[in-house]
Design a binder for these strands. Structure first.
Lengths: 340, 340
DNA sequence: ACGAGTAGGACAAACGTTTGTACAAATGGA
DNA sequence: TCCATTTGTACAAACGTTTGTCCTACTCGT
């Protein structure tokens, strides 16, 4: 049916191996032959069968992207699309195919990765987010399969990683509020099993401490990365007798929920309560008031991670195994209010 | 290195073909043998090499997703992430891998698809959006390769398609404004080479006509699907001597740009100018004012398209080759103002 | 003019599966 | 008891490449 290397060889009157060497650009073929065969390939419309190639070369020219469990919820947070945008752009430039996978449960996730990895469908794996205990990471390590993690690893073993300095970022966010005069600052966190939640909480706590502010556990709430959890957090906080005057919120999407909750309760932002979010996703500018956020360079995070993985897969050892993408605070109206 | 079917066969004292038939579940193998071999596969930790399997079966258990040209811009519009969310969820449930591809130019896009298709890396292709003239579609048709298009095709030939009734949707949006008493309604369109732009414009025009309202070409503007183009559109419109009292905007993201432009110019929404957008992406609720929009069921669009493609790839002919996902108008504050 | 060295290409094995066909043993009917 | 089926398994070819090794025919120096 399709044109194979053999058809080309026949028409050119050479052996398949010669054609193959033309394709791979071996030096053993004379320029004339190369030229002649190239022409014939074009005439016949030959395209190499990448499956066959993969079988012998044990390489696929594609990488796998493993998305955190609930694909359904995933893209509800703009963070992931932005990350994928960076990854995809890099892959596209490098002419590498990107394979996406996910699983409804942790178990399914490992299965899916296993299919990809041990079925040799990809050359490397890109992991988004890390849990404190992550079966997928453990699996990949045991298989000694190349992978890069976006986020900090909680494991002792060295892992290729592209990350934000989340502790510092949270410190900066909190510090900003303190600089605005706030003394009572709450924190809306993410799922406790994620490394990122811990890191950001730690930064927040450190900032409080360094400013000599007391820790108020009842002002620290846990959620996930969806709007709803921010909304819920507010209904809890606002029913308390004593309230913070500002919140550091682990994620912009959650911060939107917080904002919505406050607005519905008639609380003014930033006059009554100030807010700082994380990630600086595109819509932070559009809300009212626009949201102060830490820009962590999501796109670059993805782009860099993809780049690093490609290097590793090709066997070019990277200079370091932990890359940090710089962050910066973007001040908008939601925190522009000085407390006297 | 890795465990192969041969290792399993050896250990079991049978031939590789027997093991293979156990895997594929052929009826020719006795239950005892099946059971015995299953155990051995588990012991050895055997995972089939999908590449080898693909080579002989000419099937890959993955589909390709072709993203419209600029991957860089792509995810700036939440539309695509939502679509991919639907696609990915379906793929994940069907245990099919999703391969993403894109190209910086039209030429590159076709090349990338060609590599995927003729290199046999995927069994089918999912296309997002369609241009009036689309080289990728033409290529796939010529290759007689299974594909499904999200969006209406402009070609005569029958193409599997999952779409919104965009003419009707635009009609409904416009009609809503007319019902609010508006007589002077502008339209911010998308790139003229896209089928969707044409369809929505057509619906808009039809609604005007059916209400006996005159067509004002200077109130029809073209943009892309990014915020900026909405912003620019407003600066053009607002410099005109006579202005509309409402706009139908082809896309929510663009509508945000419009909103921002108007706000900066001190124009009140909806009192001075009302707005209706399309797609009902998640953040429409968060803007001030919240944006009226047509919910086109993006997630289902993706889910259904993926499902349809899988059917086609498997050879189960679908009942119809054009599926329409229903839409509905979601009225929010941006159009809640009656013109007397 | 002759042997050594080199360049250009052919051959065949290998990658890990699937699958059509052949074969042996077991079963059944007469 | 014997032949005809059926059942279960083995054999080998095929999928389309890549790559190590071998072969042939130059080119060049002497």
């Amino acid at each position: 049916m399709a044109v194979t290397i053999i058809d080309v060889a026949k028409k050119a009157g050479v052996s398949p191996s010669t054609v193959s060497r033309v394709i791979t650009g071996s030096s053993r073929i004379s320029p004339q032959t190369t030229e002649r065969i190239r022409t014939i390939m074009d005439e016949l419309g030959y395209v190499p069968n990448s499956i066959a190639k993969s079988l012998v070369s044990k390489t696929t020219n594609s990488i796998g992207l493993v998305l955190p469990k609930p694909a359904e919820e995933l893209f509800l947070n703009h963070f992931f699309s932005e990350l994928i945008r960076g990854i995809l752009t890099q892959c596209s430039r490098a002419e590498i195919d990107l394979m996406m996978t996910t699983g409804a449960t942790e178990r399914e996730e490992v299965d899916a990765v296993s299919r990809l990895v041990r079925g040799r469908k990809v050359d490397g794996i890109l992991l988004l987010y890390s849990r404190k205990e992550d079966p997928t990471i453990e699996f990949l390590q045991k298989q000694d399969f190349p992978f890069v993690l976006v986020g900090r690893s909680n494991y002792e073993t060295p892992i290729y990683t592209v990350d934000t300095d989340n502790k510092q970022a949270a410190f900066d966010a909190t510090r900003h509020l303190i600089d605005q005069g706030h003394q009572r600052i709450g924190f809306v966190s993410g799922p406790p099993n994620l490394v990122i939640s811990e890191d950001r909480k730690e930064g927040y706590l450190k900032a409080l401490e360094s400013a000599g502010l007391p820790l108020r556990p009842e002002w620290i709430l846990e959620g996930d990365f969806l709007q709803e959890s921010g909304y819920r957090a507010m209904s809890i906080i606002m029913s308390q007798p004593e309230r913070p005057t500002a919140f550091v919120v682990i994620d912009d999407m959650v911060a939107f929920g917080v904002l919505r909750g406050l607005t519905e309760l008639g609380v003014r932002v930033p006059q009554d309560i100030s807010l700082v979010g994380f990630n600086n996703i595109a819509v932070t500018e559009l809300t009212s008031p626009p949201l102060t956020s830490i820009d962590i360079g999501i796109y670059e995070l993805g782009y860099t991670a993809s780049q690093l993985l490609h290097k590793i897969v090709k066997g070019e050892p990277a200079s370091q195994n932990r890359l940090i993408i710089p962050h910066r605070l973007i001040v908008r109206e939601s925190s522009l209010f000085r407390v006297n």
